[in-house]
Nucleic acid binder design. Structure first.
Lengths: 234, 234
DNA sequence: CGCCATCTATACCAATCGGTACAGAAAGGC
DNA sequence: GCCTTTCTGTACCGATTGGTATAGATGGCG
């Protein structure tokens, strides 16, 4: 049961953080007898799967699933198509892994925000996190989840369903947090925790849309401030 | 100067509302001498351009610009590709005309909402209008403008710019309306009219995203109610 | 060394994309 | 009746899409 962390190949791209199996190989091949000293057989790959995945994520983030072509992806990842397919499966599987990476690296602020001491601070951290993540300079504008939900057509329906499920689960956590807040007297009794949580995520999603529309960071900050100024207190 | 309303062909698809020149022909051909009694020469077209445009709008609305293929468009419009190109130019021109139709027919509630007597009622009408238009049953979910802004890649950049410009102009009108409201004492002096207006459109855009994510109408209504309950009054 | 497993790269595939050439069909004007 | 003009339908275009077959390169292992 500890075989998952068996770094077998010991490739040269440093310690892999959490995701050492973008392709499926590093698991125990067939039996348990050679669990630890299995060496990578055959020609070693010449690229770092995680770096390539991060590059793919940026392309998907910038162009959406359908807008990202394989040539753009492979160019950004620095690999060729056969290498991509051997390592990641196909385009949809690559996107799914990129989405996992995105949620783990870029959406960490969501779960951490729920630990804030008051409901208002939860909202504050969520909105400021969205501001940082979706309206910054270094990364593409907008939220990959919003982009996938809006832009994916019928062909990638399963992707949209996955994004929707993720969003629903994080929103459910926020609802629970706000219910606790109301029970603790942190929120006025007349507010509906679920509606308030949905309202916060609505604003966050709206911020993503505006970010892709080229809204200035000052305007985005003003929106957040205006919304937080309306926060129910009495 | 009144020649624009000269219905020349007198086709059989009834009185055209506001948009009698989806293709460019009905204008005065060359001189002014035959302005009124110009008959349609050649074989008359067998379809109604407005009905076809409305059908194209639904396809774009459902799939986005890039997600709508010409075969799906022509099938929905009931015409063939050469007919489409002869009448509407090309795919982008068709989309632009569909967008005009959309803004005129489906986004009429925006400008009408600004005439509400109070700022709060303006927001109320805007949000309820968005609820009706983007989260209803009869039409596709979401806002075509949001879809275009989020989904259009580099190839259709001009479309996104057009949508952004439209959004900016309608938002500017809302800012002006809220400034007037504050001057009239309708809004508390501590609120920033511009930020508040941006906040309202942010919620509207967020509602569109959620609508495409399959949010229930009850939830959407709850979001609007929660937001309006936070409206600044004191 | 040779064997074998795996990766890389070129070159290719069928399907689809937006867009069009061309021939026939249907009207008005003469 | 013909001619011109415009529309319709078929059949096609080059480009691009996601995905692969195949051959050569490169390592560990015996």
């Amino acid at each position: 049961m500890a075989a998952q962390s068996a770094v077998v190949g010991l490739r040269r791209w440093g310690p892999s953080a959490l995701l050492d199996s973008v392709d499926g190989r590093p698991y125990v091949p067939t039996g348990m007898e050679s669990a630890l000293n299995t060496k990578a057989r055959g020609r070693p790959r010449e690229f770092c799967p995680e770096k390539a995945l991060a590059a793919a994520l940026r392309v998907f983030w910038k162009n959406g699933y359908e807008g990202a072509s394989l040539v753009e992806l492979t160019e950004a990842m620095g690999i060729t198509k056969p290498s991509l397919y051997a390592c990641f499966g196909n385009k949809e599987a690559l996107f799914r892994k990129a989405l996992d990476l995105y949620e783990r690296d870029k959406l960490a602020y969501v779960s951490s925000a729920l630990e804030a001491p008051s409901a208002r601070e939860v909202a504050e951290r969520l909105l400021h996190g969205a501001l940082r993540t979706h309206c910054g300079e270094s990364d593409p504008q907008g939220c990959l989840g919003v982009i996938s939900m809006v832009a994916c057509t019928t062909e990638a329906e399963s992707i949209r369903e996955h994004v929707i499920a993720r969003r629903a689960s994080s929103e459910a956590a926020m609802v629970a947090r706000f219910e606790r807040a109301r029970a603790e007297g942190d929120l006025p009794p007349h507010v509906d925790p679920k509606a308030l949580a949905q309202c916060v995520t609505t604003v966050m999603q709206g911020l993503s849309v505006r970010a892709q529309g080229g809204a200035s960071q000052a305007d985005q900050k003003a929106v957040v401030d205006a919304f937080l100024a309306m926060w129910p207190s009495g």
